[in-house]
Amino acid sequence: MVSTNFANYSPLYKQQCQNVKLIESAYDSIEKKVKEAIKTEDKNEEVVFTRLLSNITVIWMEASILKICYDNNYFTEEDILKIRESQSLEQRITSLINMAVCKRHNIPFTRKQLDTELKYTERARYKGLIQLIQEDFTESINIRNKIAHGQWKFAYSNGSNALDEIVTAKINSENIVGIQLKRNLFKNLMELIQHIAVDFDKYDSTFDVMYEKIEGYKHNKEGRNYKEYKNKLIESYKRGMVRKKESLSRSAV
């Protein structure tokens, strides 16, 4: 973020910072609950708190979008209302990117994508951001929407009373490892978008490094093994319990 005296920011930005901070605290608390459930091999609790962790991750994204809107008074009130009036969260984040890019390049704002309006390098970067939203963020939104509507075990098709087997499988395959990687991906994505709005020089100089990080998280999502992570937590917990019992036994002598 640009080095600016926090006191100079608008009340709305300061308020939204508090919203984001509270959500981040909630994420940390829920993540601890998931780990505790894994260690104690409480499968039901793990499922419950994993659903909540998945939900809070997308909630954080939604709150972060509004935080960027209020940051540094870059967007006018009319701009922000246009972004907030988008019908879906996916459209909201796309509108945020479009508006920020339009402002930076003095292009009249449009809700449509900017494929034909930008020079090659900027167009390639823009397409990369939009692709991330379409490939990674949209899926998380769909899962969050099902969870938010009480479809925690079985998800149903929109517009028909039928089981959506694809989304059901995705919901039930969610785990802490995948969610952690997605959260890191989203954090880097939001930082890039923030740089467009408030520090374009930094966006220009750090884009390649940050985008490589995001691609790394995407690759790790496929390669990082949840079962190994789970087994390590369980084994570590068991060893800790053994040491605790041994310590108590020695104290009792």
Rank of each mutant, 00 (worst) to 15 (best):
Glu36Lys: 15
Glu36Arg: 14
Glu36Val: 05
Lys39Phe: 00
Lys39Arg: 15
Asp42Ile: 11
Asp42Val: 12
Lys43Ile: 04
Lys43Asn: 05
Lys43Phe: 03
Lys43Ala: 06
Asn44Gln: 15
Glu45Ala: 15
Glu45His: 10
Glu46Ile: 08
Val47Ile: 09
Val48Cys: 06
Phe49Trp: 12
Thr50Gly: 05
Leu52Ile: 09
Leu53Phe: 14
Ser54Gln: 12
Asn55Ser: 11
Thr57Val: 08
Thr57Pro: 04
Val58Trp: 01
Ile59Lys: 11
Trp60Asn: 07
Trp60Met: 07
Met61Gly: 15
Met61Cys: 15
Ala63Ser: 14
Ser64Leu: 06
Lys67His: 07
Cys69Lys: 11
Cys69His: 08
Tyr70Ile: 02
Asp71Arg: 12
Asp71His: 14
Asp71Cys: 09
Asn72Glu: 10
Asn73Asp: 11
Phe75Trp: 04
Thr76His: 05
Glu77Met: 09
Glu77His: 08
Glu78Gly: 04
Glu78Tyr: 07
Glu78Met: 10
Asp79Asn: 15
Asp79Thr: 09
Leu81Ala: 09
Leu81Tyr: 02
Lys82Glu: 07
Lys82His: 02
Ile83Thr: 07
Arg84Asp: 03
Arg84Gly: 02
Ser86Val: 01
Leu89Gly: 04
Leu89Ile: 14
Leu89Tyr: 05
Gln91Val: 01
Arg92Tyr: 03
Thr94Gln: 14
Thr94Trp: 01
Thr94Gly: 04
Ser95Pro: 04
Leu96His: 08
Leu96Arg: 10
Ile97Lys: 09
Ile97Phe: 11
Asn98Arg: 10
Asn98Met: 07
Arg104Ser: 03
His105Leu: 04
Asn106Ser: 12
Asn106Gln: 11
Asn106Pro: 02
Ile107Ser: 02
Pro108Tyr: 02
Pro108Asn: 11
Pro108Lys: 08
Pro108Phe: 01
Pro108Glu: 11
Phe109Leu: 12
Thr110Ser: 15
Lys112Leu: 09
Gln113Lys: 15
Gln113Ser: 13
Asp115Glu: 08
Thr116Asn: 13
Tyr120Met: 13
Tyr120Cys: 06
Tyr120Ile: 12
Glu122Gln: 14
Glu122Phe: 06
Ala124Pro: 00
Ala124Trp: 01
Tyr126Gln: 07
Lys127Ala: 00
Lys127Val: 00
Gly128His: 05
Ile130Glu: 02
Ile130His: 03
Gln131Pro: 00
Gln131Ser: 13
Leu132Pro: 00
Gln134Thr: 00
Gln134Asn: 11
Glu135Phe: 03
Glu135Ile: 03
Thr138Tyr: 02
Ser140Asp: 07
Ser140Gly: 08
Ile141Asp: 02
Ile141Asn: 04
Ile141His: 06
Asn142Arg: 12
Asn142Leu: 10
Ile143Ser: 08
Ile147Ala: 05
Ala148Leu: 13
Ala148Cys: 07
His149Ser: 10
Gly150His: 07
